[in-house]
Design a protein around this nucleic acid. Structure first.
Lengths: 225, 225
DNA sequence: GCACGATGTTGACGTCGTCCACATGGGGCA
DNA sequence: TGCCCCATGTGGACGACGTCAACATCGTGC
């Protein structure tokens, strides 16, 4: 976010909007405007023209930095995964026991989704399908990889790669499902306090966790990759 | 779907497009066109004008039957929940043991999401937020209620209302998370056979299930409501 | 010191959701 | 039996959107 001013050595420092014509760092400015928009609005209200307007630039300038709207959305989603990863790691650093680490990382995940619902929805929209091999794919894999590392530390995965272990996918699906349902307001008329309901589900998952050793997955564990 | 021809007694039977002017049953025709569209296209490509065109009617005719686009989407989502419910019930009828019933219903749920990804996404988009108290809300609650019934039959919920029991939400979140991640292609580059990965997670959930008696939830179980 | 390529601008096109005024015609009542 | 009403559908328009093509601007590298 603030590595904007660290330049790649060949292209000398780009001082703030030198002329009123060339913006300076439009790409980053557009992404920030997009993130700001998503903090207050639904994901489907995002508009290239609006972002350009807000950045004080013509509508078509956007196309110098993003192939199309989907590319901008993918960039926003990628930034979302990077921020999510940061929270996952922060949760991991604050605790010693691998089990507690995993629990707190899960809670951090839920907190992230709740605090940035529109961004979260964008991250898991179908945009990944078209931009899987770009920075979006990398950022998503990094986030999921961290989860795998944490699950691997907390449970005996019988030398399965944590990233493809059923246990990891299990945890991911549970936390993602909880996040998605919560965000979509599905718990709103189910419980007076949705947060308490979610926490009780988390507790249930923890209570059920101990025997979570993948015995059956040992046989068909694809080693390596 | 075919109760279209059962008329409310006061308004005599509505024979097929009597004049070329008045359509006959435009509302249903639009919904069917929408469902057909969602079988082949992403949810965000859905357009009122296109549906009207396909139904052989002017763009504005739609507004005689739906307040706006969101209302049409809500109607489609509601129909989705009704179909999902039908599959859940079908799975329940085919098996005796409550545990097996729940397992098969879960698999049916996953199958539904996989076979109708765009519709499924619409059902869990944020459209519910604005149309919670309409037919969408009712259909969603009915589907979730069926899940609660099945969970209640399969586990000892300690006299908690199954619809608000952590166990039910737990199962729902897990299956929904699995569906959503699968649909969004998140398993695509994780496993050669995503379906097998998902099944292994389901197996893991089943293996972990037996002790799933909500002991802690007994204390703060809000009775009734 | 100049030309060139990266960056932005202007204008236009087709599509979309939605509003308004108006057309149509079938069923309930006289 | 016939007429009128109102649910239903039409036509045209508006502003916003994503995107394309042609053109303008400018700072850097030779």
């Amino acid at each position: 976010m603030d590595d904007v001013n660290i330049v790649p050595a060949k292209r000398p420092r780009r001082p703030p909007p030198r002329s009123a014509y060339h913006h300076g760092n439009l790409r980053q400015a557009l992404i920030e405007a997009g993130l700001a928009h998503l903090e207050r609005n639904d994901a489907d209200t995002l508009s290239l023209r609006d972002l350009a307007r807000r950045t004080g630039v013509s509508a078509n300038a956007v196309y110098r930095h993003f192939e199309d709207k989907a590319a901008l959305q993918a960039a926003l989603a990628a930034e979302g995964f990077r921020r999510l990863l940061a929270e996952q790691k922060a949760a991991a650093e604050a605790h010693r026991s691998p089990r507690v680490t995993l629990l707190e990382a899960g809670r951090a995940y839920l907190r992230f989704a709740r605090s940035q619902p529109a961004l979260y929805r964008l991250m898991f929209g179908h945009y990944g399908a078209t931009h899987r091999q770009g920075e979006l794919g990398e950022a998503a894999v990094a986030s999921f990889g961290e989860l795998g590392r944490q699950v691997g530390a907390a449970f005996d995965l019988a030398d399965t790669d944590p990233r493809v272990a059923p246990s990891t996918v299990y945890v991911w699906a549970l936390v993602h499902g909880l996040s998605a349902l919560w965000i979509d307001g599905q718990f709103e008329d189910m419980a007076a306090d949705p947060a308490a309901l979610v926490e009780s589900v988390v507790q249930l998952a923890v209570a059920v966790a101990p025997p979570m050793v993948t015995t059956s997955s040992r046989k068909n564990a694809k080693r390596g990759r």
